[in-house]
Each structure stands twice: as structure tokens, then as C-alpha cells.
């Protein structure tokens, strides 16, 4: 019984492709969730969803030029994502449009353009590959890219942490005492794009958002301040990656790996929503006696 369990847990990782997938997802689990925490706290959760659509035309353009080539599609995705992020940021800062509206405009254009580009050449199968990724086919280059993005993200977050928090809490104050608000905002958007592009190698454009946001939202039920939210979100993401990979390998039916990981994160979210100590639903059912003061 225990042997069987152990075999189920460890067995999959006797294979190189599973180990690679695990390493890639773990690296992503360290960098994407902290960004998700900031997105969530800035009420920009859906913004990353929009950004993931914005990456599509770039990846498609790369695909159109060079076929299923990692560097071409990565570069294309980065360029398209950064262009949409910067354009939306610029329009927000210089017109009366709010961020969500300007971003929606640009990502819709980008998404339509992306689907158009893919349909010019590729078949449905290729489109599915771009949308849903291929975590079990991570080669050395893809792993290096994910590792690099993860490293850069953590270093940049450490460097930008203070102004980023201030930009989230009180952007007007930051504007009156320094000019870093704008650059920090753009740097943050760039980090989001980089992580989505890295995640899109493993999970595809749509599911990359899942590993960024679900752990962050889940963490909200376990921790109340940033020093708790960020580590908890990383932990949730690590757990979701390991569970998703293992389950998808052992499943009797064919369970695609990318969706399995995001589904695992989804299950962790629902469980946390029910039993989490910070505003979980079950806590609400039990009315606790109020304090004296």
C-alpha cells in the first residue's frame, strides 16, 4: 500500500521529462505568484488575463515566421506583451481612460490579430499548442529561459519592493515625493509580461495566468500582510505544480499536464476559501464571541 503510494509519488520523476517539468514549474512558482499578489492587491487580477491574450499575436507572429520555434515565439510574445503593456500604461497616464479600459482595448486588438495570424498558416492543433503549452516537452533552452526569468523577477522585486508598495497604496503621494512611480509601474508590467511568456512555455498563454493568480488569491485566506502573502503564494504554487504533475502522470484517463496543475491550484483555492483562517467561509458559520475592546 505504502509502496504503491510511494511509487505513485516518486515514480513519475524517474523520467527526465517529468523532472524537467517539475523544475520548470518550481522556478515559475517562485516568481509568478508574488507578482500575482501585487496584481490582486491592486485590483488588477484580470489585467494579467488580458496580458496573456496580448502575448498571443507575438507568439503567433514568431510561429508564422519560424514555425514551432521556441526563441522566435518567445521573442514575439515578449515584444507583443511589452508593447501592449506600455501602450496601455501610456494611454492611462496621458488620457482620461482608466487602466482597465485602455488595456481591454489593446488586448482585444492583439487577440484578434493573434488568432488571425495563427489561422493564416497553422492548423487547429498548433493553435491548441500555443494556447495550452507543453510542460512535458521543456527542453534545455526553455528551462534556461524559465530559470532566467524567475531569477530576474525575484531580483527586480527585491529592488523595487518599496516603491512598488507605495505605488500600490498611495500613488499620489509617491508622485509628490519622487518620479519613480511611472518607471516602477512599467517595470512591474514588464515583469508580468516576462513571467507570462515564461509560463506560456510550460502551461500555454491561458494557463500561465493560473499559476500567477490562483496561488496569490489563495494566500489571501491564510495571510494578512505582504510578508505572509508572498511566501504563502509561492508555497501554494509549488504544491499545485507537484500535485498537478503527479496526478496527471498517474491518472487513468488522459489528463493534460498544464490544466492539471492549474486545476490543482484551483482545488487548493477552493479548500482555502472554505477553511482558511482569514475570512474563510467555515469561519463565518461559527460566530465567535466578540472581545471586550
Amino acid at each position: 500500500m505504502i509502496d504503491a503510494l510511494l511509487a505513485g509519488l516518486v515514480g513519475p520523476y524517474e523520467f527526465g521529462f517529468m523532472r524537467r517539468a517539475l523544475v520548470g514549474c518550481l522556478a515559475l512558482s517562485l516568481s509568478a505568484p508574488p507578482l500575482g499578489v501585487f496584481l490582486m492587491l491592486r485590483r488588477m487580477s484580470l489585467m494579467s488575463e488580458a496580458m496573456s491574450h496580448a502575448i498571443l499575436p507575438g507568439a503567433a507572429a514568431g510561429f508564422l515566421v519560424a514555425g514551432l520555434s521556441l526563441p522566435a515565439m518567445t521573442l514575439g510574445g515578449l515584444v507583443a506583451g511589452l508593447a501592449v503593456a506600455l501602450l496601455a500604461g501610456f494611454v492611462t497616464r496621458s488620457t482620461m481612460l482608466k487602466e482597465d479600459a485602455s488595456l481591454a482595448a489593446f488586448y482585444l486588438i492583439a487577440l484578434a490579430g493573434g488568432v488571425f495570424l495563427v489561422s493564416l498558416r497553422g492548423s487547429q492543433v498548433d493553435l491548441l499548442h500555443i494556447l495550452f503549452g507543453s510542460v512535458l516537452a521543456l527542453d534545455d533552452d526553455a528551462l534556461r529561459l524559465i530559470g532566467g526569468v524567475s531569477t530576474v523577477t525575484l531580483l527586480a522585486l527585491a529592488a523595487l519592493y518599496r516603491p512598488l508598495v507605495m505605488e500600490c497604496v498611495d500613488p499620489l503621494y509617491l508622485r509628490t515625493v519622487s518620479r519613480t512611480g511611472g518607471p516602477v509601474h512599467y517595470a512591474f508590467l514588464a515583469l508580468v509580461v516576462m513571467n507570462l511568456v515564461a509560463g506560456f512555455q510550460a502551461l500555454g498563454t491561458l494557463l500561465a495566468v493560473g499559476l500567477m493568480l490562483l496561488p496569490a488569491i489563495t494566500a489571501r485566506f491564510w495571510a494578512s500582510d505582504l510578508s505572509g502573502l508572498i511566501p504563502v503564494s509561492m508555497l501554494v504554487s509549488v504544491l499545485a505544480s507537484a500535485i498537478g504533475l503527479t496526478v496527471s502522470y498517474n491518472a487513468e484517463i488522459r489528463l493534460p499536464t498544464g490544466p492539471a496543475i492549474v486545476l490543482a491550484a484551483g482545488v487548493l483555492y477552493i479548500v482555502s476559501m472554505l477553511i482558511g483562517p482569514r475570512g474563510g467561509l467555515l469561519r463565518r458559520l461559527v460566530r465567535q464571541r466578540h472581545l471586550e475592546a
Binding site: 491592486r42 500613488p171 494578512s224
Partner: peptide, 8 residues
């Protein structure tokens, strides 16, 4: 103030 008071 534009302060987001929901921020932890």
C-alpha cells in the same frame, strides 16, 4: 487621498 485602505 487616493490611498487604498484595503491594502494590508
Amino acid at each position: 487621498a487616493e490611498i487604498d485602505r484595503g491594502f494590508p
